[in-house]
Structures are given as structure tokens and as C-alpha cells.
Design a protein around this nucleic acid. Structure first.
Lengths: 236, 236
DNA sequence: TTGCCGCAACTGGTCCAATCAGTTACCCTC
DNA sequence: GAGGGTAACTGATTGGACCAGTTGCGGCAA
């Protein structure tokens, strides 16, 4: 028989996740004061420094506001939180945010993908186009493992996003990807049909290579709308 | 004569900003190891805990990877960072990322705004529509201060985004807004013409109230494209 | 009685010092 | 030359002390 390695993670991270989950899960309303650091340290049975490190991360994530001398207050993350939070919402306790979340992510990804395809067609350098085509021919048969297919699909889209030469889209794509990874099983399933359609991808890449923005946008729309439909169907 | 209050901010924040700027400014390449905590503490002339708190924030921001026993390494933030980073890029030292950034943000905001307007028209509740109309009539004259106008403009769009009922768009809008706020002067200027056009906003709200998604999308496109044009012009 | 002033008790911020716990690389042995 | 073991790194965690703002209560003065 074999044993799994004992999971071991920093104390401050455990505290961070605990508090984050409490906030995202609604156990603290916006404006509520968190317990004082000394009390938190006592309750979690860790040193105060560890609590402070966790609080720094919460602060960076836009979940709390810390004031010297005053209390640490919980912010309204829907109003102040950034897109990075999306990946953590699924773990926000028992609230059934999962389905709504999946639809949100796929919906946004479809729409942004359309513009990205158009921009890539307009802006991709020769080297980037070559990279896209290489990625396409590197593609193996359809019998591959879903994980492999998904990986290649993500990689292809990442290259397209980079070619679009828009920092907001690049970083936003990273965030959406992270959110998708957090709900892995559901996400992969939704994108499976699309990810396996190599012929459609080839058409898209050809349009980008031709610099035909409108055609690229239309093709991307067709591709990504399939996943959106799959997501909406999965919710029913 | 009068004196200004002495600016006073936490030491860990100063360290954080210093390191962030060093990383985003390219003074560390992706994969490079940061100096050890003990050395950083010595060089910044602060306690090691302050350094650790700063590192926790960098870690949360997706800029570094910390490994117990090993070195703290700088990540490739363009490949791994989330949209939240966008607000920090303006502080990337002397690299001329500013102009590219402004175009990216305005471009993304325009495109997302179009979809948001369409979705809001389809999904806004009666209460949300009433809220939008109220915000419109609350609008004061055109002689107002630019700060006030900008504030109201942002508030109106936030309400539209919320009405679109898509968590990814809500949080993404927060991130884009934060990025805009980081480059305040330039951003306000670009959006000024659009923000002052109350009549166009009234049309947009009317379309949303009617549930006419296509018309709302078209109007939003017209509005936001103005700012995009202004941004592109500002870059020339 | 009412207003305000000041202090005391809270809150977070910073420091010092020590020790635990992984990683890495060098050196010695076989 | 390959291997293992150890020493010297790295970050992780703890404890305790003290500094620095905020808040609210109680007593003093008008």
C-alpha cells in the first residue's frame, strides 16, 4: 500500500482562506468589523503575525479595509473586489453561486473572445501568426484525453489573446481561466465540444492570418456561442 | 502660513510599492530570485515582518512565488497575473506602459460596455430600471466640476453593469475602474465628452427600459466609441 | 443640566530575538 | 564518477514588548 503526502501549508494561508471564505460566504456583511487581530490569533490558535499576514492578503484582494487604531472592516466585495475574486467565489460556503458563476464566465468569455479574434486579425505579427498555425498542426488526433485537449485549447486561445495586443484582455483572460479552473469539471465539459473542433479552429486561424477581422469575429462568435449554449443547457 | 499634514503610511506598504515597481518595471525578469527576506529587511532598514507582509501582498497580487526553504521568485505577470494587476501597471517605473495601458482599458471597456448594455436591457428588474432613471434625473447641470461628472458617470455605468446580472462583468468593471483611477488625469479626460452627454445617456436608459437589447447595444457602442477615439487621439 | 475636555482602554503597526522547517549545494567517501 | 550526508542557506512561526492612532466614557467647568 502507498500513502499520500501529508498536506502541509503555511498557517497564514489557512487563516487567509478561512477568513476569505467567511467574507465571501456572507458570514460578514459589508461594513462589519472583523474581530481584533489579537482575538483572531487566539481563536485560530496561531501567532498574531500569522493573522496579520493573512489580513494583508485580504486587504490586497480588496476584501477588507484596515485602519490604524480603528477596526478592520469588511468591504462590499461585489462593489470593490476585482475580477481575481471570481476564482474564489465558488468556495464561498454553501451559497449556490456555482451555476450563476459558470454562466457569467462563459458569457463573458464568448463576448471578449469575439473582440479578441477581431483584434488579433488586425494586429498579429507574422511570427504570432506562424505560432498560431504551428499550434494547430501540432494538434494530435481526436482520441486524446480531455485534459490534453483542454490544455491545447487554452494554449491556442492564449496565443490569440496575446496577438490581440491588449493588456486588459490578456490579464482578464488569465482571471477567467483561473475562475474556470476552480470549477474544473463543469468548465471542461462545457468547452469540450468546441475544444475538439479542430476544423473550426483552422478556419479561425486562417481568417486571422488573412487579417480579416470581421470574418475572424464571426467565426469566433460561432465557436464560443456553442459553449455558451452548452453552459445554459447544463444549468437547466 | 500653513503646513500640510506629514504623509504617513505603513512601512510594509512602502516596501510593497518599492518591490512592485521593481518587478513591473522589469528590474527583475520572470524567474529571477528576489533577495532573501533578511537581506531585504536590512536594505530597507525595516523589520523582517514588514518585509514579509509586503511579500504576502505581492504573492496575493500574483507577482511572486514563495517557497519554503527555496528562494522567492518573480513570476511572469503577463502570463500569470490577473486583471487586478492592471491598476498597478501605471506604477511600473519608467517603462512607457502608460499609453498602451490607456488604449487597452478603453478598448476593453467599450466592447464589454456594449454587451453589458444589451444584457441589462434583457435582464434589468423594474427596480433596477427605476434606479437608472432616477440617477439620470438626479443629474445636475453641465457646469459641474469634472470630478463630480466623472463620479456620476461611473455610478450610472455601475448600475447598468449590475443590472446585466453577470458577476464576471461586475468584478471586471471594478478592475477596469481601478486601473482607470490609477491613471486618473488621463482617464477622466478621455471620458469627459462622453460623461457630459446626458441626452445620449437618456436614450440608452430608455432603450434598456424598453428591453430593446439591440438598440441599447448600438447606443452604448456609439457612446463608448467616442471615448475610444479620444484615447487613440490622445496617444497621437 | 449641558457641553467639552482629557484620559484610559482599546485598536492596529513595528520592532527585536529566537527557533523551527524545508532546500540547496558542496564535499567527502566509496 | 556516483552517491550520500551534512552544513549553510532559505522561508515559517513563535513570543513578547512597545509604539501609534481611535474611540468612548467619565468628570470637570460653564
Amino acid at each position: 500500500m502507498s500513502f499520500e503526502p501529508v498536506p502541509r501549508r503555511p498557517v497564514s494561508e489557512a487563516v487567509f482562506e478561512e477568513l476569505r471564505s467567511a467574507i465571501l460566504g456572507g458570514r460578514y456583511a459589508a461594513g462589519d468589523a472583523l474581530p481584533p487581530e489579537r482575538l483572531l490569533a487566539e481563536e485560530f490558535a496561531v501567532n498574531r503575525h500569522a493573522v496579520r499576514e493573512a489580513l494583508k492578503r485580504l486587504q490586497q484582494a480588496g476584501l477588507v479595509e484596515v485602519r490604524h487604531g480603528g477596526a478592520t472592516r469588511v468591504l462590499d466585495w461585489r462593489a470593490d473586489g476585482g475580477l481575481d475574486l471570481l476564482a474564489h467565489v465558488p468556495f464561498a460556503g454553501d451559497r449556490a453561486a456555482g451555476p450563476e458563476l459558470l454562466r457569467s464566465v462563459v458569457e463573458a468569455r464568448r463576448w471578449i473572445g469575439i473582440d479578441v479574434a477581431r483584434l488579433a486579425a488586425m494586429r498579429a505579427t507574422a511570427a504570432q501568426v506562424a505560432g498560431l498555425q504551428r499550434r494547430l498542426t501540432d494538434g494530435a488526433g481526436p482520441g486524446d484525453d480531455l485534459d490534453v485537449i483542454s490544455q491545447r485549447y487554452e494554449d491556442l486561445w492564449r496565443a490569440i489573446v496575446v496577438a490581440a495586443d491588449n493588456l486588459a484582455y490578456v490579464l482578464g483572460y488569465n482571471s477567467l481561466l483561473a475562475a474556470g479552473a476552480a470549477a474544473q469539471e463543469a468548465s471542461q465539459e462545457v468547452f469540450e465540444d468546441e475544444a475538439r473542433d479542430v476544423a473550426a479552429h483552422a478556419e479561425l486561424i486562417a481568417a486571422i492570418a488573412d487579417g480579416d477581422g470581421e470574418r475572424a469575429a464571426t467565426l469566433a462568435d460561432g465557436l464560443l456561442s456553442r459553449s455558451l449554449a452548452a453552459a445554459l443547457e447544463a444549468l437547466a
